[in-house]
Nucleic acid binder design. Structure first.
Length: 312
DNA sequence: AAGACGAAAGTGGTTGA
DNA sequence: TCAACAACTTTCGTCTT
């Protein structure tokens, strides 16, 4: 599975800016300049299964020394002054705070940093802020953040931000990064931490995928399932059954084109009926943010098509 | 009263002429 | 660019426990 190999040759410094800080971006199989974000070389082909790396594998690689410096734009010189009038929770600042921040920002502007670089800096700061409030699993948070930062740098490098707000790109970068690590964050959740509409994030996300030539990022349905099961804190038999039902549904081709969360909700519902640890449609609907109607539709399909194939 | 059911109308995204 | 379409949502009346 580890396709890192062969074509590697030594790259001493970035062709563009001369920086010697060349790092491996494992998610995309590229050597990237950590200073300017230029992609220098691929080290394995990006086709097919690269996305299916498990979290465990990622852990292995991380321990092998993935640098943790992407999110700092320039050796820690960046001040943490957001370019938006908000506090770390994305709430608007009070007027007097606004003034203070305005003064600080003026100071920051006077440092010899180009307009372009400021966009980069504020984007990275935004990513930092948002990742802290996204409730990412502890063991993956840093790496998601790094990954998002890399994506943002690339987008910045390729001029994707022109004509767009930096924050749109920053948020979408985070979204991509979550998917790369198989962490099923919804547009709703991204919307909450960024204050942007789901529509905007989704659009920018698609734009990034296209422009940066990422393969479509489809998470395994089990990621959604484990997230949902955690919400209900129901483990053991019901959990096991849920997975069985889901894989049977997939087998029976009941899942294509369907919202994965709806499928998961229906599976949990059936599992809850079968195990006696009953969960109501209403509760599922509320916690998983799908309507009861959708849950019912999925559940009826499943009962009709495949329930009898599931061993209990 | 709470949960489940399903019809009907509405929404936002995709596809294909 | 527009119409048809699939998936999903909202709303609401009805039935069951």
């Amino acid at each position: 599975m580890n396709k890192e190999i062969a074509i590697e040759s030594k790259i001493e410094s970035c062709y563009e800016c001369g920086s010697k800080n060349i790092v491996k971006d494992y998610k995309n199989g590229e050597y990237v300049c950590s200073n300017c974000g230029l992609v220098l070389q691929k080290f394995y082909d990006t086709g097919k299964e690269w996305r299916s790396f498990s979290l465990e594998e990622e852990n292995e690689k991380a321990r092998a020394g993935m640098p943790l410096t992407y999110s700092i734009h320039d050796k820690g010189l960046a001040t943490s002054i957001s370019f938006f009038d908000e506090d770390i929770y994305g709430k608007p600042l009070k007027p007097e705070q606004k003034q203070t921040f305005h003064r600080l920002r003026e100071l920051q502007k006077r440092m010899r940093v180009s307009e372009d670089e400021r966009t980069l800096i504020s984007g990275l700061i935004e990513i930092e802020r948002m990742s802290e409030h996204l409730n990412l699993p502890k063991n993956a948070r840093e790496r998601v953040k790094e990954s998002a930062s890399i994506i943002f740098r690339k987008a910045w490098k390729e001029g994707l931000i022109r004509g767009r707000r930096g924050r749109d790109i920053a948020t979408a970068s985070l979204y991509v990064a979550c998917k790369q690590f198989n962490i099923p964050k919804t547009l709703d959740e991204l919307s909450e931490v960024s204050g942007l509409s789901k529509k905007k994030i989704g659009k920018t996300y698609r734009h990034i995928l296209e422009e940066l030539r990422y393969s479509p990022l489809i998470l395994p349905i089990s990621s959604y399932a484990s997230k949902a099961i955690n919400e209900f804190k129901k483990y053991g038999k019901i959990e096991e059954l849920t997975y069985k039902i889901l894989s049977a549904a997939k087998e029976a081709r009941l899942s294509s084109g369907r919202d994965p969360v709806g499928l998961v909700a229906a599976s949990i519902y059936i599992a809850s009926l079968l195990t006696g640890e009953w969960i109501s449609q209403g509760e599922l609907s509320k916690k998983l943010r799908r309507t009861e109607v959708t849950i019912r539709n999925r559940y009826k399909e499943m009962v009709r098509e495949l329930l009898f194939n599931i061993e209990l």
